[in-house]
């Protein structure tokens, strides 16, 4: 039998189920509509593509710090965690369940390229229904957290969904955005962006840049325990969906355009934000990075 690992496990390398088990209180996770229900995609077979018994997402109930929560984990290894009809409906159902059960929070472990193109229309519709359900849950007073630490990061419509949540927690290795590097290169050409430039990709979409902008509220190591600590912290800090709160957010985002709107890439933005030696930032570990960015790091209101 497997002994507990002596070294910290990687959140990024873990399966969606493993991430949920590591995040929640030991033994507390109960899956809803699990793989034995065989609720697979109804659309992939016609395209001669294999299905997954859970359609690439695990949803269920558990506890965090002794309090009841609902949680979902996207499985990035299946079709890049992309959202199809069933996958999205499981997320929407979970968020609707929150309206009835009133858990302490809903935790979304996002690992996705966005809409599943093989289910195009049903995919975008599913993302929209998830987005509405996230905001309904928040409006009803249930905090929703986005935890982004998988190999796919979080892109497309789900990148917008992440920012509809109360807070975003990211690892340095994760990426968050709307149009990914391949999409931009394909539509605008390599002169606009060279998707094979890995360092540039991380300077643009990676955790450090997102945390410096304030797009990610907390940057953590690629370690399940670190994500757990951050989740425990951020479920206690919901952001109200009120006019004053959204006007503060409006001002925050307007100020970013004034200050950084002329910046075409990450290091430009870091310099404009007040970082003394921006080119060093990608090389630093998290404590050193925190010290180096200091007061230049923006925080969402």
């Amino acid at each position: 039998m497997t002994a507990p690992p002596a070294v910290p496990r990687s959140f990024r390398e873990a399966s969606a189920r493993r991430r949920l088990l590591d995040l929640l209180d030991p033994g507390s996770f109960r899956e809803l509509l699990g793989p034995a229900a065989r609720e697979s995609s109804p659309h992939l077979a016609a395209l001669d593509l294999p299905v997954s018994f859970d359609d690439g997402v695990v949803v269920g109930a558990g506890r965090l710090g002794g309090e009841p929560v609902l949680a979902a984990g996207q499985e990035g290894r299946f079709l890049g965690g992309a959202v199809g009809e069933v996958h999205g409906a499981k997320l929407t159902g979970l968020l609707q369940r929150a309206l009835r059960e009133r858990p302490r929070a809903v935790l979304l472990l996002l690992d996705t390229g966005g809409v599943r193109l093989q289910e195009a229309n049903a995919g975008i519709e599913a993302v929209s229904e998830v987005m509405r359900a996230v905001l309904s849950a928040r409006g009803a007073g249930v905090p929703v957290l986005a935890l982004v630490g998988g190999a796919w990061g979080c892109f497309g419509g789900m990148g917008i969904v992440a920012r509809c949540c109360d807070a975003v927690v990211m690892s340095e290795e994760a990426r968050l955005g709307l149009s990914g590097p391949d999409v931009i290169e394909a539509s605008r050409g390599v002169e606009e962006l060279d998707a094979s430039d890995r360092a540039m990709v991380w300077r643009t979409w990676g955790g450090k840049h997102r945390a410096l902008l304030g797009e990610a509220d907390e940057l953590v190591e690629d370690d399940p325990a670190a994500f757990r600590r951050a989740a425990l912290e951020w479920v206690r800090r919901p952001r109200p969906l009120s006019l004053p709160a959204l006007e503060r957010e409006q001002a925050f985002l307007a100020r970013r355009l004034e200050e950084l709107g002329g910046c075409a890439d990450g290091p430009d933005a870091w310099r404009a934000a007040g970082v003394a030696e921006p080119d060093r930032l990608p090389l630093l570990d998290l404590p050193a990075w925190s010290a180096a960015v200091g007061g230049a790091r923006r925080r969402r209101p």
């Binding site: 699990g34 793989p35 034995a36 294999p50 018994f53 859970d54 499985e75 290894r77 299946f78």
Partner: peptide
Amino acid sequence: PPVLVGAVGSGNLEVLVE
């Protein structure tokens, strides 16, 4: 209770045991 191990991807598979 059933378990699911692995993931469906190119050159990979998932196995459900019940």
